Amino acid sequence: MANEEKPCPCDLGDKLEYGGQGQEVQIEHIKAYVVKPSSASNKAVIVIQDIFGWQLPNTRYMADMLASNGYIAICPDFFVGKEPWSPTDDWSTFQQWLEDRKPTNINKEVDAVLRFLKDQCGAKQIGAVGFCWGGVAVHYLSLQYPELKAGVSLYGIIREREDRYELKSPTLFIFAENDAVIPLDQVSTLEKSLLEKCPVDYQVKIFQGQTHGFVHRKREDINPTDKPSIQEARMDMFNWLANYL
């Protein structure tokens, strides 16, 4: 799910057999996966899940990758204990499932995570990275939380808010050319409107030949032809965070 106006189901992709290097903790009313870098850091990144939930190994792998690049990485359960979507679920019930899991209704959880990062982890500079459902969430946070120094929204887009182009945090948007969830005309509209209305730095980048979820749901060893795009997009993510955090 990446377009909250007309959401579409998406495939799980290549699920990693990956245990993770961090630990699960309780933060106020939610659980979270936290992984810290090998040396002390005051920079943190909130990693926001896709529809398959905060425990998806692919997403934890991305959090660990961020930690290996020097960031405190935290992946909270933004569904707050509710079941994530399962590939075996009936897609006809998707809209009903989504009703109480909106990526634009996460302020309480974000506030709790920010308090934890500042008070318990000593974070001074905080960014956000999100995939699919989480990409929508990052777009939303970039409109709501100027204290976030950078955002990376991967294949997620908001269409219904009047202020959706008035970003308060520098944001990188990454899209796939052959995304069945987000057609390119939506991306073009986003880019054109950001040019006219956005007061902060932004970038919109489309990866040719790629499909929805390619950055975190495709394994390079299984998809060697996609490997350059996967690696380039991840490097873009790291470079964007490094520029602003």
Rank of each mutant, 00 (worst) to 15 (best):
P103L: 09
G81I: 08
K102Y: 12
P183F: 09
D179F: 01
V25F: 10
P146R: 11
Y155E: 07
I51A: 02
E83V: 02
L56M: 15
F116L: 03
E109S: 02
N239G: 05
R234K: 15
A123S: 15
Y71H: 13
Y202A: 06
V47C: 10
V80Q: 11
K82A: 11
K102S: 11
E5P: 02
M62L: 15
K149N: 01
N42I: 07
A123P: 00
P7Q: 03
P7M: 01
D201H: 08
F52V: 06
K118A: 08
F131D: 04
I158D: 06
L12E: 15
A233M: 10
V138N: 00
I174T: 00
A128S: 02
L190D: 02
L194S: 00
G53A: 07
C132A: 08
V215C: 07
M237L: 13
V34I: 12
Y140H: 10
K218M: 10
A180K: 08
E99I: 13
W91M: 14
A128R: 04
I157Q: 02
V204W: 04
F207Q: 14
N105S: 12
P7E: 07
T189Q: 14
R101K: 15
N42S: 08
P9R: 14
E99L: 14
Q55Y: 07
K15F: 04
G127V: 02
Y140M: 11
N3E: 04
T211G: 07
L148Q: 03
V47A: 03
P103W: 05
K36V: 13
M235D: 09
V80S: 13
V47D: 02
W240I: 10
Q55K: 15
E162N: 15
E177P: 09
V204E: 00
I74L: 00
D226H: 07
I206G: 01
I48L: 10
F207L: 11
P228Q: 09
E99G: 06
E5D: 04
V136M: 15
F214L: 07
P228N: 03
S39P: 08
Y18D: 06
L154F: 14
L241E: 02
T59W: 13
F79T: 08
A32H: 12
E162Y: 05
W97Y: 11
C8L: 15
Q210L: 02
T211D: 09
E28Q: 12
V181D: 05
E4F: 14
C121I: 08
E166P: 06
K197C: 05
K102R: 15
E109L: 12
Y155H: 09
K197L: 05
I157V: 07
L172P: 02
Y33S: 10
Y18C: 01
N69A: 00
W91V: 15
L245C: 05
I74K: 01
E4I: 13
Q21F: 11
Q231N: 01
I48F: 00
P76C: 03
A73Y: 01
V110W: 03
K36Y: 12
S169H: 05
I230N: 11
Q95N: 03
K43G: 06
T225E: 11
I230P: 00
L12Y: 12
T93N: 08
A176Q: 03
D201Y: 10
D14H: 08
K124P: 05
T189Y: 11
D89K: 05
E5F: 00
V25S: 12
D179M: 06
F78N: 09
R161A: 03
V129M: 14
S153R: 03
K205W: 06
Q120K: 15
